[in-house]
Amino acid sequence: MAQLTYREAIRAGLEEALQSNPETFIMGEDVGAYGGSYAVTKGFMEEYGEERIIDTPIAESGFVGTGIGAAIAGMSPIVEIMTINFSLLAMDQIVHIAAKARYMSGGQISVPIVIRTVSGGGNMLAATHSQSLEAWYARVPGLKVVTPSNAADALGLLRTAVADPNPVMYVEHSLLYGSRSEVPDEHYTIPFGSARVARGGTDVSIIAYLRMVPVALQAAELLEEDGIDAEVIDLRSLLPLDTQTFIDSVHKTNRAVVVEETWEFGGFAGEIIAQINEKAFDSLDGPALRVGGVNVPTPYSRPLELLTIPTPEMVADKVRSLF
């Protein structure tokens, strides 16, 4: 076991992909000479050459579409969109071509592309640079959406993403890059649609993904002081979604709180709660609840911004309301 940061784990996965497949290339804004906006691909251009580590103009639809076209031609591109906010400029290509080309061609086409991007707020970057939009993509049949919360998952899920013959949105979080966790030395992969019990417990199921997993784990520690034994479920991927793991958990704990960073209104937590109602209603001792981002454009000012993102205290308070 090695202790790796989230960033190092992703780097390791990217290097494996580059070394194992000569038809894999990395394309995006400032991924090469600059080394990546979050330094994930630092040094790659020197190591793998400009032919494979490709800086693009600021033209998200153009270069994401180029990656999709190369994937349709049978290559295995990894395209980086600097942040998920900018992915909106490429949404036509992602939603209309990558997600639908296979279906609309009657199965003639595959689109084996990995689109890496960075989600989330908390960096005082204001409304256009602080959004969590992964749940939008999780509503599109034909895409896969992966949300690693720690280094070990980041590597295992990236390996699966690279091997997957379908378009995968691999969503990272800017505040997780420095986080460390144990990463097994032996080769392993993590299949999509396999949620993880991040912490076992008996009294309540806290269901989360991406950076809300560490937040939920901290909430569980706070709740321990109240004598509440919380189980934390890390969804790991939103599409495909592993419903069984959290349904089993709710059958055991009889209570559920879903946590996510995106706007609470119309968010992915609503989907999880609907699934709980459909499949575990009789097990519930109270309503399935949610804690999401506040429904406002994210403000710049620090004290205001801090009010918009769920904290361990907010999650713990919501859980306590069930007891």
Partner: peptide
């Protein structure tokens, strides 16, 4: 490689196919 129905959407795709070539 397809008729594409969102106006302009097929252009990046063509660039990508040519990139692979």
């Amino acid at each position: 490689m397809g008729g594409h129905a969102i106006v302009g959407g097929q252009l990046p795709l063509a660039v990508g196919l040519a990139f692979a070539n």
